[in-house]
C-alpha cells in the first residue's frame, strides 16, 4: 500500500500576540510547526505502515523552510518527502492550493491520501475536500478512526456534532483527520539522525503539468481585500474588592440587566 500524506507548516497561532500600540500581528519569534491535524493524519498513515507495511510519502506546499516539517516527518517514520515550492504558487487560496496538490498527486502513485482536517492558521478545512474533488475520489472528513481489513476495505469513524458515523469504502479516497483522535509518535533518535541524510525532493510548478493560470494568486477566485485586527469593545468598570463586595456588585449588575 502507498499512502500520500499532505502536511503544512504553520505558525503556532497560540503564540501569536497583538502589538498593543500598532495593533498589528507580532509574527517575529513565533515558532513554525507541523500543523496538528496533519500530524494526526501522518500518525494514522504510520499506524497502517506498522500493521500492514506501507510506503508513506509526505508532501507539503510552502516556502523552502517547510523542509523542516518534512525532516520531522522522516524522523517519525515517513519514507519519502516532497516539497512543492515555487513563486508561481504564492498567494494561493484554498482552490488554487488544492489544485496544485491534486496535480502533484497525479504525478505519484498512491492508494490512499491522508490530510489534516484543517490548518490552525486558516481554519478553513477546505483543501482536503477540494483536492479530492479535483482527483475525482471520495473524501471523508473529520476522521477519528481508521481500520483496514488487510485486503481492500477501509472502515472509517467520522465525527460530527451529535456523535459519529461509520463509513466504508474500497478503492482510492482522501481522508482528513482530527488531531484529537490519535497521539502522534515522537521522533525516534535514529530517525532524527537519519532525517537529514534523506533526500527531500524539490518540485516546482513546472512539474505539475497544469496551466499557470490555475495556480497561485492567478488561480485563486477569492481575494483578500482588507485585513485588520479586531476592535475589542470598550471595557466597563473594574473593581478590586473582597468576595463579599464582589457578590454585591454582581447581584446589582444582574438586577440592572433584569436577569434576576
Amino acid at each position: 500500500m502507498k499512502i500520500l500524506v499532505c502536511i503544512k507548516q504553520v505558525p503556532d497561532t497560540t503564540e501569536i500576540k497583538i502589538d498593543p500600540v500598532t495593533k498589528t500581528l507580532v509574527r517575529d519569534g513565533v515558532p513554525a510547526i507541523m500543523n496538528p491535524d496533519d500530524k494526526g493524519g501522518l500518525e494514522f498513515a504510520l499506524q497502517l505502515k506498522d500493521k500492514f507495511g506501507a510506503e508513506v510519502t509526505v508532501i507539503t506546499m510552502g516556502l523552502p523552510q517547510a523542509d523542516l516539517i518534512l525532516r520531522e516527518a522522516f524522523a517519525m517514520g515517513a519514507d519519502k518527502a516532497i516539497l512543492l515550492t515555487d513563486r508561481k504558487l504564492g498567494g494561493a487560496d484554498t482552490l488554487a492550493t488544492s489544485k496544485a496538490l491534486a496535480c502533484a498527486a497525479k504525478q505519484l502513485e498512491w492508494d490512499l491520501i491522508i490530510a489534516g482536517r484543517q490548518a490552525i492558521d486558516g481554519d478553513t478545512a477546505q483543501v482536503g475536500p477540494e483536492m479530492a474533488e479535483h482527483l475525482g475520489i471520495p473524501q471523508i472528513s473529520y476522521v477519528a478512526g481508521l481500520e483496514y481489513d488487510g485486503k481492500k476495505k477501509f472502515t472509517v469513524k467520522k465525527e460530527n456534532e451529535d456523535g459519529y458515523q461509520i463509513l466504508e469504502f474500497e478503492g482510492k479516497a482522501l481522508l482528513t483527520c482530527l488531531a484529537s483522535a490519535v497521539k502522534p509518535r515522537y521522533m525516534s533518535v535514529s530517525g532524527i539522525v537519519d532525517a537529514y541524510d534523506k533526500e527531500v525532493e524539490i518540485w516546482g510548478a513546472d512539474k505539475l503539468q497544469v496551466e499557470d493560470t490555475q495556480l497561485g494568486l492567478k488561480g485563486s477566485p477569492t481575494k483578500v481585500v482588507k485585513s485588520f485586527t479586531k476592535e475589542l469593545k470598550q471595557p466597563g468598570e473594574i473593581h478590586e474588592v473582597d468576595a463579599e463586595e464582589a457578590v454585591e456588585l454582581i447581584v446589582a449588575k444582574l438586577k440592572e440587566k433584569h436577569i434576576i
Binding site: 497561532t13 500581528l25 492558521d121 481554519d123 477566485p221 477569492t222 481585500v225 485586527t229 479586531k230
Partner: peptide
C-alpha cells in the same frame, strides 16, 4: 472571517467567479 487563530480579521471577496 477570523484568521490566525482569531488574531486577525480578513475581508474576502470573490470578484470574478
Amino acid at each position: 472571517r477570523p484568521a490566525f487563530g482569531g488574531n486577525l480579521m480578513a475581508t474576502i471577496m470573490c470578484p470574478n467567479h
